[in-house]
C-alpha cells in the first residue's frame, strides 16, 4: 500500500531502498516517494531499525552539506537523524528544496552522511526485511548521476 499523497506532501518521511546495490535512507522533506516504497514495509523497516541494535560504524559527512545548510541552521541538529542512519550502514540522503526559475519548488537529493568504510554498508539481511529496490529509471539515474553513489569511497 502506498502512502497517501496528502501524507507524503505534508510529512518528512524516512524511507529506505537499495539503488545500484547501495542501501540508502532518504528524508523525504515533503517530496513524493518512489512507487517502489510501500508504506507498510517502510514502517516495518523503521520499527525494526529502532528495535535492533546494529553495530555502529564511523561516518563521513557529505561535501555539499555546508552549502545546503547555509547560515540559517545548526549543523549538529541538521546532521542528527542522518548520522544515526549512516552509522547503521545506510547512505543517508536529504531531499533539498530549491526554487526553480518558475518560482516553484524542485527537490534535489544531497548526500548528508555515509559510512566511512564501504564494507560497513548494511547488509539488507541484517534487518530481516527486504528493502525495496528502485527500478524506476528516472529515480535510478537521479541517484546515480546526481549523487555519484558508487564513487563515494
Amino acid at each position: 500500500m502506498k502512502y497517501r499523497i496528502d501524507y507524503q506532501l505534508t510529512h518528512d518521511i524516512d524511507w529506505f531502498a537499495v539503488v545500484c546495490g547501495i542501501p540508502i535512507h532518504v528524508a523525504s522533506n515533503g517530496n513524493i516517494l518512489p512507487n517502489e516504497v510501500d508504506s507498510k514495509i517502510n514502517r516495518q523497516i523503521q520499527k525494526r531499525l529502532a528495535e535492533i541494535h546494529l553495530d555502529t560504524c564511523d561516518v563521513s559527512i557529505g561535501q555539499e552539506v555546508t552549502n545546503v545548510l547555509g547560515k540559517s541552521g545548526d549543523l549538529d541538529f541538521y546532521l542528527e537523524t542522518f548520522v544515526e542512519y549512516a552509522s547503521m550502514g545506510f547512505v543517508s540522503i536529504d531531499s533539498h528544496k530549491v526554487l526553480n526559475e518558475r518560482g516553484s519548488i524542485d527537490f534535489r537529493p544531497v548526500i548528508v552522511a555515509y559510512p566511512s568504510n564501504r564494507n560497513k554498508l548494511i547488509v539488507p539481511e541484517a534487518i530481516g526485511i527486504h528493502l525495496p529496490i528502485l527500478q524506476n529509471e528516472q529515480h535510478k539515474s537521479q541517484f546515480q548521476s546526481q549523487l555519484n553513489l558508487s564513487n563515494l569511497w
Binding site: L9, T10, D12, I13, D14
Partner: peptide, 28 residues
C-alpha cells in the same frame, strides 16, 4: 516501536500586537 513521521514544516502566527502565538504544522 510506534512510528510517527516528522511534519515537513512548522510556523507560528499571531495577530499584530497580540502576545498569543499559534504554532501549526503542514497538514492536508
Amino acid at each position: 516501536s510506534t512510528i510517527y513521521d516528522y511534519p515537513s514544516c512548522a510556523v507560528g502566527c499571531r495577530r499584530i500586537k497580540s502576545n498569543e502565538l499559534f504554532i501549526e504544522t503542514s497538514r492536508a
